[in-house]
Design a protein around this nucleic acid. Structure first.
Lengths: 246, 246
DNA sequence: TCTGTTCGTTGGACTAGACCAGAGGAGGTG
DNA sequence: CACCTCCTCTGGTCTAGTCCAACGAACAGA
């Protein structure tokens, strides 16, 4: 753990500053899963805060899944990546890997464009705002699994429209590297029938059953970060949702 | 808020005792949604504990969705019932009501029986254990929406096998009244085709698309509480999942 | 070599205070 | 009457300690 000065932001609570510092170190790769985080007493000594304050930062990170604690041993960086940053959803990548299938993607569309009505509604943007639109074909072991279209506010993701979408590119990992985390999401899941374009790209017959997922994700300040619409091949896909009360 | 003595259970942390007391009062109907809970200072005075200890109990209940707080005003009993007790899933009842459809049920099977292999696996039971099996047809505005089969350990739900399943009976409400809460759940969702029995009961053609949901729920001690397998009419059903990082 | 015991470290629980900021009611003033 | 100020209540943050329980390493003895 780096020895950084703490009071960089006046006005922001101490425990939040410490929390963000640790969160950044995990996200940036300074600390790895399994690494021990300094103890409550060590942090409070080092940063000149009381133990309860350091404790509050650690407990929040534990609740959010970034750390885990073992009495008598210490506090450690969590292995599971909180399902790509959001409790409860399993991402395409996670789900595929969990079933021993190698995930990949093929970029279909990728452009910076003027937000249309639907995008403005979902992302709470004003007329004239720009968005980045990504359309990808998701593959599992090389076979088509899903068709996914994501729209993000352009000013939040500069450079995204030029990044390669092929191979094992993960949008969530890309965002995480830039310290953009999801805080909340609203997702719907339903069954629909494949239209011509979808059928062709996914390699099924027109009228085949597809799982349609729509997700609206919000960032840490509550601002909309992305809107996703994905069509999954019903015969090759099953959703897992892990739900925790705490 | 009732003035109950606090140290009824030695060994159990004070803040957990307070938390359980408040939780019980909400579940039992002593306190209603919107009611103000005593302030941190009032609770600490009344029960002879420090403010931080009372605070810990309140904050945990806030995190679990039973209470909400407003700075300068107070702490209140939450209106939303955390989606029938579990963050993230919308229950059949909630989802129907949200769409302005009146939910109802028709009991199909209901019996106390020896747990079969599958039930023992899902509920972590020993050979010879008994389970309660409930099979219901779920209706929305009188029309068939889903076929639901739930299996619960018999010793945890005495009397359930004799309770009427028809009308607006809610299993989760029944459990809540007995202070049985879910703590964790694992759910899968996939698309399947209707077989003969399902098609007849749901009023669709054989081969029609259905959404198959399987859920395994765990109680506050981590013991399995129920296993549910439900088939939803794809044309009439859409799942909502609200996901929160905190 | 194995088997306890001791001891330092960690997280868990708890105390008794402090100051701040937001909400809202009680009064006073125009 | 309408408006403003002040005072009290609330939760939010923070301090500087205490004692306990679990873990594990170092150590001592059979």
């Amino acid at each position: 753990m780096e020895y950084t000065a703490i009071r960089p932001q006046r006005g922001l609570p101490l425990y939040l500053q410490l929390k963000q510092m640790i969160q950044t170190q995990i996200a940036s790769g300074v600390m790895h899963p399994g690494d021990r985080v300094p103890s409550e007493r060590e942090l409070s000594d080092r940063f000149g805060m009381s133990r309860m304050t350091a404790r509050q930062a650690l407990l929040e990170l534990v609740r959010e899944g970034f750390l885990y604690r073992e009495q008598g041993r210490g506090t450690f960086v969590a292995h599971r990546k909180v399902n790509q940053g959001l409790l409860g959803v399993t991402s395409f990548t996670d789900d595929m890997r969990a079933r021993g299938v190698e995930p990949a993607s093929r970029g279909l569309e990728q452009r910076l464009e003027l937000a249309d009505q639907e995008a403005r509604d979902h992302l709470e943007l004003d007329l004239g705002a720009m968005v980045v639109r990504l359309k990808r074909l998701r593959l599992g072991d090389g076979r088509p699994m899903a068709l996914e279209e994501a729209v993000l506010p352009a000013d939040l993701v500069p450079g995204l429209e030029e990044h390669s979408l092929d191979g094992d590119f993960s949008l969530y990992a890309w965002l995480r590297e830039r310290n953009i985390f999801f805080q909340r999401a609203r997702q719907t899941l339903e069954a629909v029938l494949a239209n011509g374009e979808q059928a062709e790209l996914l390699g099924v017959l027109v009228g085949a059953p597809l799982l349609l997922l729509e997700r609206q994700s919000y960032g840490q300040d509550g601002q909309p970060l992305e809107f996703v619409r994905a069509h999954y091949r019903a015969d090759r896909f099953k959703f897992f949702v892990d739900l925790t009360q705490v």
